[in-house]
């Protein structure tokens, strides 16, 4: 991947120019789907955009010292890493990539939740600290399944390049891996039934409690970009191999939209689980998924 394609991917498609409107669109789809499931009409199409602009125009509380600087930095790091993760997705055919970009993608997708944990603790609000502790516990439990699912798909093909993974033919292992990823997404995106870190009826806004104005706008944006990155990862793994570039882009967008819709409907149809139930769910039930995936990956590897 040379410099120009890298910049084009980061800034245009599937990077910022595409990802920011897509993030707003997905946030809207989430709210609208929940509203429609509840028999309401829901927010207008441009709502996340209005919210973003309004938050940019609000004040921020005075912050001083190293803690204050860190608090300002976390949302920016989260946005940057989420945007980078979106830029790495191999949406267009033969768009270039490098050996090991899968690992970079996983690291970048993990950074926003690390930032959330750090933000909650550095805000020193009791609600923020509880939210961060919950996020930490949650991320320990779902990440094992999430990583094992992806790594098993990669290991079966002897490659850590996203481009090569996206071009795999459909196999039972891939279906298993995608299912395991889908089970992890609600926890990664803080949706019901695993919306523990930002459980608004229990701990106000969790790690975001002390954030306001432009900083909060950045958090909303990074949340939206996380939506795009997480659903995009599943979409690229699930998409069939297509060589026409516009068709590939279209299939990518349609698949991501479908996943967003699925997740929002599940979110509005379920209630929040307790933290211990959630952790038990991920350790007991979905670990079986992951073990199956790893076993079949090893099996495929030795057979080939």
């Amino acid at each position: 991947m040379n410099m120009t394609t890298a910049l084009a991917r980061l800034l245009i498609f599937p990077g910022l120019l595409f990802a920011v409107p897509a993030a707003w669109f997905f946030l809207w789809v989430e709210r609208k789907a929940v509203a429609m499931m509840q028999g309401r009409i829901g927010p207008p199409f441009m709502q996340p955009f209005y919210d973003f602009i309004k938050l940019l125009g609000k004040g921020t509380p005075p912050r001083s010292g190293i803690g204050g600087m860190l608090m300002r930095a976390w949302p920016l790091i989260a946005v940057a890493s989420a945007a980078g993760a979106v830029g790495l997705l191999p949406v267009l055919p033969s768009s270039g990539g490098f050996q090991g970009d899968l690992i970079l993608l996983l690291a970048l997708m993990e950074l926003p939740s690390m930032c959330i944990i750090a933000a909650g603790f550095s805000s020193r609000s009791i609600f923020g600290e509880i939210g961060s502790a919950r996020e930490a516990v949650l991320s320990v439990s779902y990440n094992i399944v999430f990583l094992l699912a992806i790594v098993s798909i990669a290991a079966s093909q002897h490659t850590f390049s996203l481009e090569a993974l996206a071009q795999l033919p459909a196999s039972p292992l891939r279906v298993l891996g995608i299912l395991a990823l889908l089970v992890c997404l609600p926890a990664k995106l803080h949706l019901n039934p695993f919306s523990l870190p930002n459980a608004e009826q229990e701990i106000y806004s969790g790690p975001m409690t002390e954030y306001a104005g432009p900083e909060l706008a950045m958090w909303e944006l990074s949340h939206g970009l996380e939506w795009v990155a997480a659903t995009g990862l599943v979409a690229t793994l699930a998409a069939p191999v297509i060589t026409t570039w516009w068709l590939a882009a279209l299939v990518f967008v349609a698949l991501s939209f479908g996943i967003v819709l699925l997740l929002s409907v599940v979110a509005s149809a379920t209630a929040r689980l307790q933290i211990d139930t959630t952790v038990r769910f991920y350790w007991q039930c979905t670990l079986i998924f992951a073990v199956l995936a790893v076993a079949s990956a090893l099996f495929m590897r030795f057979r080939s």
């Binding site: 309401r40 009409i41 829901g42 207008p44 509380p61 609600f127 608004e200 806004s205 975001m208 409690t209």
Partner: peptide
């Protein structure tokens, strides 16, 4: 919510 109203958890 049609008017964009959201009940927030934090006064911030």
């Amino acid at each position: 919510e049609q008017l964009g109203v959201r009940l927030e958890g934090s006064p911030r």
